[in-house]
Computed example of a mutant assay.
Amino acid sequence: MENSAKQNDVYAADGDTRRKILLILLERAPVIASDIAEQLQLSTAGVRRHLDNLVEDHLAEAVSPRQNPYEPKMRGRPAKTYRLTDKGRSIFGHGYDSLAVAALTTLREVGGDDAVRTFAKKRIHDIVEGVAPANTSEKSIEDTAKSLVEAFSNHGYAATVDAVGNGLQICQHHCPISTVAAEFPELCEAEHQAVSKLLGQHTQPLATIADGHGICTTNIPLTPIKHS
């Protein structure tokens, strides 16, 4: 009986670690095993075992790391990076995709494209409601970007913001409406417009989950918009 109880504890611990790794892959991918190990304070070998199991279960996949052109090339084989598969992302939910697509299709048939755009603007307004617009200072822009990331994360987007080059980069590691957005790009367009307006900056969408990428990435050069 005692051995059985200990075994169950091990299985429970494994399940908890597995969930934590899945969440890190959702929020920070692509990521290497040693970075996950450092964040969870586990051995790299133990994390690799979990990653191998996730790959075997088709929940994660190993991808070739991208070489930063501004960094010197390192000798030796680069470490594997990992990210979630579509199956892995589905664990975190995609909302009522079929119902939403059907509803928006009907809305377009009844009210046309303008009706869909109006819906998209209302939806993003509800998500970012309460986020204070930035002024022209970089500190204010960074604070607004952090507030946007928090608002998106509260709605299931697992968003992060990082300083990149001469600007900021907002990444959404999960999109709860990706299937719907693939058919109705007005949803993404309204989102980019809202972000640009609140930050007072031009935005450069680099990739979207709706288009088949593993992450939604928006670049924000810290250059104020000049109004004519």
Score class of each variant (00 low, 15 high):
residue 170 I to K: 01
residue 170 I to P: 01
residue 109 E to A: 07
residue 37 A to F: 03
residue 170 I to M: 07
residue 30 P to R: 00
residue 168 L to G: 07
residue 209 I to V: 08
residue 5 A to M: 13
residue 190 A to V: 08
residue 34 S to L: 12
residue 222 L to E: 00
residue 28 R to N: 03
residue 76 G to C: 02
residue 9 D to Q: 11
residue 10 V to C: 02
residue 70 Y to W: 11
residue 82 Y to I: 00
residue 12 A to R: 15
residue 160 T to F: 09
residue 88 G to N: 02
residue 14 D to K: 15
residue 43 S to R: 05
residue 226 K to G: 04
residue 14 D to Q: 14
residue 146 K to V: 14
residue 191 E to W: 08
residue 130 G to F: 11
residue 15 G to S: 14
residue 42 L to V: 05
residue 212 G to K: 02
residue 103 A to E: 14
residue 188 C to T: 07
residue 73 K to T: 13
residue 192 H to E: 04
residue 208 T to R: 08
residue 146 K to P: 09
residue 215 I to T: 00
residue 25 L to A: 10
residue 167 G to N: 02
residue 142 E to T: 10
residue 124 I to Q: 11
residue 157 Y to V: 03
residue 91 I to Q: 15
residue 122 K to P: 01
residue 225 I to P: 13
residue 39 Q to F: 09
residue 172 Q to W: 11
residue 8 N to D: 00
residue 14 D to Y: 15
residue 24 I to Q: 10
residue 1 M to N: 02
residue 100 A to E: 09
residue 153 S to E: 05
residue 34 S to K: 15
residue 107 L to H: 03
residue 15 G to W: 13
residue 173 H to K: 10
residue 23 L to G: 05
residue 139 K to G: 11
residue 93 G to L: 06
residue 184 F to P: 04
residue 226 K to N: 09
residue 36 I to H: 06
residue 77 R to E: 12
residue 223 T to K: 15
residue 225 I to V: 15
residue 167 G to R: 06
residue 46 G to M: 03
residue 74 M to S: 12
residue 19 R to W: 05
residue 56 E to H: 06
residue 184 F to Q: 03
residue 13 A to E: 12
residue 78 P to L: 07
residue 171 C to I: 05
residue 126 D to Y: 05
residue 89 R to C: 12
residue 142 E to R: 15
residue 163 A to G: 06
residue 7 Q to K: 11
residue 52 D to E: 11
residue 214 G to Y: 00
residue 138 E to D: 06
residue 119 F to W: 07
residue 149 V to S: 02
residue 183 E to W: 09
residue 168 L to M: 10
residue 201 Q to L: 15
residue 173 H to M: 12
residue 53 N to L: 14
residue 147 S to V: 02
residue 112 G to V: 01
residue 157 Y to A: 06
residue 121 K to G: 03
residue 184 F to H: 08
residue 163 A to D: 09
residue 226 K to I: 03
residue 222 L to F: 09
residue 12 A to I: 09
residue 38 E to Y: 02
residue 29 A to W: 00
residue 24 I to Y: 03
residue 161 V to A: 12
residue 193 Q to R: 15
residue 22 L to W: 01
residue 62 A to T: 04
residue 17 T to C: 12
residue 131 V to H: 03
residue 51 L to H: 06
residue 51 L to I: 02
residue 224 P to T: 06
residue 190 A to W: 00
residue 128 V to M: 03
residue 217 T to G: 07
residue 16 D to M: 14
residue 196 S to K: 01
residue 3 N to Y: 13
residue 155 H to W: 09
residue 52 D to A: 14
residue 50 H to G: 01
residue 168 L to T: 00
residue 91 I to F: 14
residue 126 D to K: 08
residue 15 G to E: 13
residue 145 A to P: 10
residue 29 A to R: 00
residue 50 H to D: 01
residue 110 V to C: 11
residue 190 A to K: 02
residue 21 I to V: 13
residue 161 V to P: 10
